[in-house]
């Protein structure tokens, strides 16, 4: 019996959300008094033995570059086989793009119950109950899994990565990889930018910025903070910013440590996408903007004056540290 954690990689690098999943899975293993192991698919340039620092003793790898693109069908088959081979009873994913594609499919294959979007360790005192976010972050549900094997996908940015000591061994998994029925013809990645769902800090703009030509002040602040950038729905709809930056109920849902909303009124649909952020800062010239009710810090003022001053203040503060 063990806990198996799916380690997601992109361009040969282990994703930050997977490090969270490893820490989380290792903590479940500790709770159950069993071993924690990982599985990675495809070719990886990172040193996988170093993942031992996050609490796993072994990494199973199917070292085949045909797996560098996510094909849910192939992934599910291989991961399910690895679960059977390793005798794992709990399988952990990050609830990121790959997890959303694969976790439920593996669960169905194994006939295992799944909690997707988990946000806390399971309660194993009476059964196996996992807390997850529901209603787009407006509430939580405690879900009991009844099956022998349990699958959990963990919300990104909801479990703190802990780095300790340890080295993992690498075990090559000899599993036959079927030909993929999905032919990837193009990849458009915004290189160098922090992926929105993994970012610690997100700076976001709304209609209050009046037009795409005014985004410079926001980008300067984001650059100073090493933050990802986002926008509200009207901004995405008006094509002031690319569609993938839209956060909200029908856009991307994020949970950074710090969310800075500039010129966003804070409609309930927008809040649904960002209310899991740990600290929310709202800058808006309208003191009645509903977003202030959901914020931790706020400035009622003109974004065009406040934002450059904030960038300068942060720059100055960093210089003095």
């Amino acid at each position: 019996m063990s806990v198996l954690i799916f380690i997601d990689q992109s361009d040969g690098h282990v994703k930050k959300s997977s490090l969270e999943a490893i820490t989380y899975g290792a903590d479940i293993a500790k709770q159950l008094g069993v071993a924690a192991e990982g599985i990675v698919l495809g070719t990886v340039s990172d040193d996988l033995t170093a993942l031992g620092k996050y609490g796993i003793s072994k990494v199973h790898q199917v070292n085949n570059n045909a797996l560098n693109h996510v094909d849910a069908q192939l992934y599910a088959k291989i991961i399910a086989e690895a679960v059977t081979l390793s005798g794992a009873k709990v399988l952990v994913f990050s609830h990121n793009q790959t997890g959303k594609a694969v976790a439920a499919r593996v669960a169905a294959r194994l006939k295992a119950g799944i909690v997707s979007g988990a946000c806390a360790l399971p309660d194993t005192s009476n059964g196996f109950v996992v807390k997850k976010t529901v209603f787009s972050g407006k509430a939580f549900a405690n879900i009991s899994i009844h099956s022998d094997i349990k699958v959990i996908s963990l919300n990104p940015n909801s479990y703190k990565t802990i780095v300790g000591e340890g080295t993992a061994t690498i075990a090559d998994l000899n599993i036959i990889v079927d030909p993929s029925r999905i032919k990837v013809t193009a990849i458009n990645k915004v290189s160098g930018d922090v992926p929105l769902t993994e970012a610690d800090i997100v700076v976001s703009g709304g209609r209050g910025l009046k037009g795409p030509e005014n985004w410079g002040i926001l980008l300067d602040l984001a650059k100073e903070l090493g933050a990802a950038t986002a926008c509200s729905r009207p901004v995405g709809d008006a094509h002031w910013r690319p569609h993938h930056e839209h956060v909200g109920q029908t856009g991307v849902q994020i949970a950074p440590n710090l969310y800075i909303a500039i010129g966003i009124s804070g409609a309930i649909q927008h809040l649904a996408g960002v209310n899991r952020s740990k600290v929310i800062v709202v800058i808006n010239k309208d003191s009645e903007a509903p977003f202030f009710k959901a914020a931790d810090y706020g400035i009622v003022g003109d974004a065009f004056e406040v934002v450059p001053q904030l960038t300068a203040a942060i720059k100055k503060m960093k210089a003095s540290v």
């Binding site: 509430a139 009991s144 899994i145 931790d296 406040v306």
Partner: peptide, 24 residues
């Protein structure tokens, strides 16, 4: 394979701390 046992609402926010616009 699974069932909902209970729901919870998130703890209420403590309230916004406002900073003056001339004291960024």
């Amino acid at each position: 394979l699974s069932s909902i046992i209970s729901y919870e609402l998130p703890p209420a926010k403590a309230g916004v701390k406002l900073v003056a616009a001339d004291n960024v």
